[in-house]
Structures are given as structure tokens and as C-alpha cells.
Amino acid sequence: MVEYTGWRKSTRSSDSGQTNCVECRQTWRKSTRSDSDADPNCVEARNTDAGFQVRDSKLGHDSPVFDLSASDFTGLLRVADRS
């Protein structure tokens, strides 16, 4: 698990002491099957350089964040589609 703040450094920024860097906040995407009125049991996901991260949307920043490889995330989506 990782911290919820998803800042991402520009790929053009190196570790060579360059101070002119740009960081972008990674945004969470809520499941398209989630309806704020009907179903509070939702997940949010975002992509990372290493794959994907998933968290419980109703917990927000207090939710644990799970790191998944691309294949694990695809498997999760496949299983969730059967439910």
C-alpha cells in the first residue's frame, strides 16, 4: 500500500539536481457502475507507472491503497463484470 497523495514527477525531470520540475496530481476515477445515490459500495482506480492503484471511494483519503499490476487489474475487472 502507498500513501494516497498521487503526485507524479515529469519524466523529463532527472535526479541530477534539476530544480525546475513539474509534478502532476494523479486523479482517481470512480467506477462507472457506481451511482452516488443507489450504491455507496464503490471503488476508485488510477493508473501509475507500475500498473494501477485501487481504493474504497467511500473512505476517500482514509482508504488503504492497493497496488496492482496491469494483469491483476484486468483480472479484477473481469471478475467484477461477472457479479
Rank of each mutant, 00 (worst) to 15 (best):
D81W: 10
D56H: 09
F66H: 03
L76I: 10
S83W: 10
R29G: 05
S10G: 12
D49L: 14
S31G: 07
F73K: 14
Y4F: 03
R8D: 09
K30N: 10
T5R: 10
R33K: 10
T19I: 04
N47K: 08
G51D: 03
P64N: 05
S10P: 05
D56S: 02
D56N: 13
K58S: 15
D37Y: 09
V22T: 09
N47Y: 10
T32A: 10
S13P: 04
S34Q: 06
T27D: 06
E44F: 01
K9P: 03
E3C: 05
T27Q: 09
L76T: 10
R55G: 02
G51P: 01
S63M: 06
W28Y: 11
D49V: 11
S36L: 14
K9D: 02
D72V: 12
W7R: 11
D62E: 08
F73P: 08
G17E: 00
G60D: 07
R25I: 13
D37N: 11
R78W: 08
W28P: 00
C24I: 13
K58N: 05
S16Y: 05
S69C: 09
V54H: 02
S63K: 04
S16Q: 09
S13Q: 01
R25K: 14
P40D: 03
P40S: 13
R82A: 05
Q18V: 14
F52I: 01
A80Q: 03
R78N: 12
W7S: 11
V79G: 09
N47L: 01
H61E: 12
D56L: 03
A50N: 12
A50M: 07
S63L: 10
G51R: 00
W28C: 12
R33Y: 09
T32P: 06
L68Y: 15
H61Q: 01
K9Q: 11
L77H: 05
A45C: 10
D49N: 13
T74E: 15
L76V: 13
S16A: 15
V22Q: 02
W28F: 09
V43G: 07
S63I: 10
L59K: 14
A80K: 05
S13E: 06
D62Y: 09
T11R: 11
G51S: 06
K9G: 03
T19Y: 02
S36H: 08
K58G: 00
D72M: 15
G75P: 05
D39E: 04
S34P: 03
F52H: 14
G51Q: 04
L76D: 11
N20I: 00
T27H: 06
D67Q: 15
S36P: 11
G17A: 03
D39Q: 13
S69L: 09
C42A: 00
A45R: 12
W28S: 04
S57G: 01
V2M: 00
S63Y: 03
S57V: 00
S36Q: 13
V65F: 01
A70W: 07
L76Y: 11
D67N: 13
D35G: 08
D49W: 08
S13F: 05
T11M: 11
A38R: 15
Q53M: 09
M1V: 12
T11P: 02
D81Y: 07
T19C: 08
V22S: 05
V2P: 00
E3M: 03
S83N: 08
C24H: 15
L76R: 14
F52L: 06
D35S: 15
S16M: 01
A45V: 14
V2Y: 06
G17P: 04
R29I: 08
V65T: 11
G17Y: 01
T48D: 00
T19Q: 08
R55W: 01
L68P: 01
F73D: 02
